[in-house]
């Protein structure tokens, strides 16, 4: 297993890239909504995305974020 520092050394830029990609996707969606007045209903998939981002934004958490996100995106009923 890598040390905490080495994890960031190795994966920090990956994380940066993925976060920017998420931001760009949300921007893309916002622009599309602004362009299409008829498309006013909020898509429930977007709520899932923001819910997932809230999990990632927790300052301290247990190391099971990926499992929680995958469950969040699953039909569990």
């Amino acid at each position: 297993m890598l040390t905490a520092d080495k994890v960031l050394d190795r994966y920090y830029l990956d994380v940066r890239c993925m976060l920017v990609e998420i931001a760009a996707t949300l921007d893309r969606h916002d622009r599309a909504v602004a362009d299409d007045a008829a498309d006013s209903a909020r898509d429930p998939r977007l709520d899932k995305v923001y819910e997932a981002l809230a999990v990632l934004a927790e300052g301290s958490s247990t190391a099971d974020r990926s499992e929680r996100l995958l469950n969040m995106f699953s039909d569990l009923d």
Binding site: L13, D14, C17, V20, E21, A24, T25, D27, R28, R31
Partner: peptide
């Protein structure tokens, strides 16, 4: 460029804008 610069999708976004 993978990871450190612009991705294909973001490039298309900028073309749209």
């Amino acid at each position: 460029y993978p990871i450190t610069k612009c991705t294909p999708k973001r490039a298309v976004d900028m073309l749209e804008i």
